[in-house]
Amino acid sequence: MSRGYGTRPTMKDVAVEAGVGLKTVSRVVNGESGVASATAERVRAAIDRLGFRRNDSARLLRTGRTASIALLLEDIGDPFSSALSRAVEGVAAEHGCLLFTGSSAEDQRRERDLALAFCARRVDGLIVVPTGDDHRYLLPESAAGTPVVFLDRPAAAIEADAVLSDNAGGARTGVAHLIRHGHRRIGFIGDLARIHTSAERLRGYRRAMADAALPVDERWIDTGPTDAARVTAAVDRLTRGAAPVTALLTANNRITLAVLHHLPSDGPRPALVGFDDLELADLLTPGLTVVAQDPAALGAAAARTLFERLAGDTGAARRIEIPTRLIPRGSGEIGPRAG
């Protein structure tokens, strides 16, 4: 069939090409049931031949939905964030939705600007790994019908769905593991104290020490930015200073990497348990013992929660905690140094 130069094929063109009704084409394009497999295949073949693309502007006018959601991460380049993104994208694809992604870089203003920019572009829902300490700016969007799910950290100053790791429980398990291997002087190197995950992991550290009736010297705790200079200074102070420790719990993968770069490759070194797994961690000498999160489960749970809201769930805000897992590989099984 012929069309005018520069015109885009329509569903009517596809229907004529495939020899079916317009409603049949609509059902195939929108992933609806009720079309025989052979007929659906004929329609898809006609779509391919004509180069038909669904008109999402028309879809928006008809349904009020854009078939798109947005994910706002801390840093898309971080392996943990990348795994979250893949999991969310997988669930979105199951629902015929596109995923738009942005990085806040731990900047509260950028988080707000990106979140509102996504909403201005009429995404159907929003998943946020939050940086800010006040998320009331999202209340008008939520009231207008855009569901928001918080991932990895809870919202601040509003009630909203949150999907989190068991941060306190994971840290408690990691420290208890070190205690079982004879350590009594255990250091904690964490992220900024205001960050929910860092605060929860420090809480788990303290709980494990209390469970074992062990005192905590506040000099064993160091929190702050995750840059290498701060972390290496913390390692030196904790392992060689006035109150040296024999073991360390590092509270995220960036901190763990900085510590690994700084620890001596030979000679005495503290036992180490890292929170978050690392690629090739089992190839180190000794292998890195970690408290592993499950970013695939976290991302998938957040996406499913969002689509449940889009499907009409209006229940109270939910808090979902995904368990962590201790993986012993050697670094956390080193006994305390003599002396």
Rank of each mutant, 00 (worst) to 15 (best):
E89T: 09
G51E: 05
V290L: 03
G330L: 09
L139Y: 06
V16C: 00
V43P: 07
A213R: 14
L280T: 10
L288K: 08
I221K: 09
S33K: 13
I195T: 12
L71V: 00
L192D: 14
G315C: 04
R121T: 02
D133W: 04
R3F: 02
A296L: 10
S37D: 15
A171C: 13
L139K: 07
G96L: 09
D191M: 07
S331V: 07
R184E: 15
G6S: 08
E321R: 15
R304L: 00
L249T: 09
T10S: 14
A67C: 10
A36L: 13
V35R: 06
A242M: 09
P328W: 00
E218M: 12
A233Q: 11
E321T: 15
R121I: 10
R49C: 11
G51Q: 04
L238D: 08
G96S: 01
G51P: 05
F52D: 01
V129L: 10
Y5V: 14
F307A: 07
A92G: 07
R49G: 08
A242V: 02
E89L: 01
V25Y: 06
T305V: 07
S198Y: 05
A87L: 10
T66L: 01
D222E: 10
V148S: 07
T197L: 04
T7E: 14
R269E: 02
T239D: 14
A45N: 12
A251C: 13
R240F: 03
L280W: 13
P9V: 08
G174W: 01
A83Q: 13
L114E: 09
D222C: 14
R325H: 15
A317E: 00
D133V: 07
R240P: 03
N55W: 03
L298I: 04
P147K: 11
D222I: 09
N30Y: 02
R65Y: 12
G34P: 02
C119T: 15
L238H: 13
T246L: 01
A115V: 11
F307H: 03
S2N: 14
T39G: 08
L288W: 11
I327E: 03
I195D: 04
C97F: 07
D48G: 15
L257Y: 00
E74M: 13
T289K: 10
A247H: 05
P79D: 02
I158C: 04
T24G: 01
R122L: 08
G31R: 06
V128Q: 02
